[in-house]
Structures are given as C-alpha cells and as structure tokens.
Design a binder for these strands. Structure first.
Lengths: 135, 135
DNA sequence: CTGGATCCCAGCCGATACTG
DNA sequence: CAGTATCGGCTGGGATCCAG
C-alpha cells in the first residue's frame, strides 16, 4: 500500500500536527500563509523588505484593512517581523523572519509553477466550459 | 477534428501571468489550489484516488456542498479528473491529473513543512499574545 | 452512494472616516 | 506615513432536503 513515490506521510502517521484533522492549529497557519492575501504578502516580502504602503502597491488590489489584518496574523505566527521607527513621519518596515523565508520559498515555488502552467489551465477551463455549455 | 490550439499568444512571452497583478487569472487558480479546502483536497488525492465520501472523511470538517464545489473548481482547472461509473449504486472516483500531481507535490511540501514547524509558531503566538495582553 | 437545490447566517472584505 | 474604527454588502460555507 505504500507507494515509493509518496512522501513519508500516511493516513496512519502519528505526527503531532496533522493538517487533515479538523482541530489542528496547523490548519490555521496554513490558511494564513496560503490565503488570498497571505501568500502574496509573503511572496512580496521575500523579494525585499517593504514599508506598509509599498507593500500595498506591490500586492495589487489589497485594501488597507486586509493588509493590516494579514500582517498582524503573519506577525503573530512568527513569519513576519515588524520594525517600527517612531520618527516623524513614522516609518515601519516589514521583513520575513527566517521561518517566514522558508515558507515563502515554498510558496513562491508553487506560485511560479502555476504561473508557468496557466496556458494548460486556461485550455482545461475552456474545454470544461464547452462541455458544460453543450449540456 | 479538434481545432488546433494555436498558441499565437506566445507573442506575450514577457511574463504573461503575474499573480501580483489584480486581474491575472493565475490568482484565481492559486486561490482554488491553496484555499481552505482546495489544498487539503489536493493533498488527500495525492496519496490515493478517492471516492466522494472517502474524500469527505479524509478532509475532516468539509461539508458536502464545499467538497462538491471544490472538486468542480479543481476539475475545471484541470487539476482533478472525475471518473464516474454509472452503476448502481453509482461510484465516482476522483484522481489527480499529472498537472494536479505537480501542484499537490509542492503543496504537500509546504504542508509538511508547516506541520513540522508548528512548535515554533505556537511559541511565537504565545509571545505575541503575551505582549498584546500586557499592552 | 453521489451530489444538486435551497435556506440562511457569520465572517470576509471593501469603502470611508478618523487618529497619531 | 501608518494605521484603527465602523458600517454594510457580498459570499463562503454549513444544514437540510431531495433527486438520480
């Protein structure tokens, strides 16, 4: 039943944190990291540390509220570090923690992969929609 | 018989799909794949092909509606293949397409990574909350 | 067994206004 | 510049019933 190509996860794995379980806190972390804005925020910060409004410009379409909320969640999870200078005007830099960099790396791998395969996906969608329309 | 899918869009080879842009369709795909149920569904199907209710049991907490909806989106994107046998009782198997396997692989890399780092994350959360509570 | 259709609520999220 | 507070619409998502 074990496939040699499968990762060393099995349904019987007694890992302390199993994201497939409803109450596992890792599910929350995964949602913060891969959520609509979390993934893009981590991706943007992987390239360079950014200030609030620069980040807002980089992550096209995010509102102040959601960016603020996303950053709080990621900071709380220990993926993002907030560096505030109480100058006038105020300046706050956001940067990834070492843990955040590792998460962002894997996320960017996925992001770049899907960007590269979009033509296939678009074709699949067209085929699917054509079938549905006929029916 | 099938109209050749002429890829004359290759004129826009200059990064045609940028997930950081608001209107890019890759953002939708990323959300399907990394969304709350999409990621877990792909992860479950990477291990083995599953039938509807088996999948529902594996992805703890998902409702029929959301699983159905998630599967439709992933099928439309060409990540999941639906194999129906019109027997009685009906039997439907869901399996990953080759593209879906590649996405799921990267997703599982991320999932296993965050599962393994949960202790750090929980510590970070405790520290953050302690700071906030004092303030 | 597989899922579609419907009802309905909570929360996500954007827009706006305000503070330091 | 860097956010917080508040309101309100929209939709994600659960519960339930029902059809094939």
């Amino acid at each position: 039943m074990d496939q040699s190509t499968a990762p060393e996860t099995s349904a019987t794995d007694d890992l302390p944190f199993d994201v497939f379980s409803k109450q596992c806190p890792s599910r929350g972390l995964l949602e913060h990291a891969t959520g609509r804005w979390g993934a893009l925020t981590l991706g943007a910060l992987y390239e360079e540390s950014l200030r609030f409004n620069a980040l807002r410009r980089r992550v096209d379409g995010v509102s102040e509220k959601m960016l603020s909320q996303t950053l709080h969640a990621l900071e709380r999870d220990g993926l993002v570090h907030r560096e505030a200078q109480l100058t006038n005007p105020p300046r706050v830099d956001y940067e990834l923690t070492p843990l955040g960099r590792e998460v962002a790396e894997r996320l960017l791998g996925l992001i770049h992969f899907v960007e590269g395969r979009m033509p296939e996906v678009l074709e699949a969608r067209a085929r699917y929609d054509a079938r549905e329309t006929r029916a």
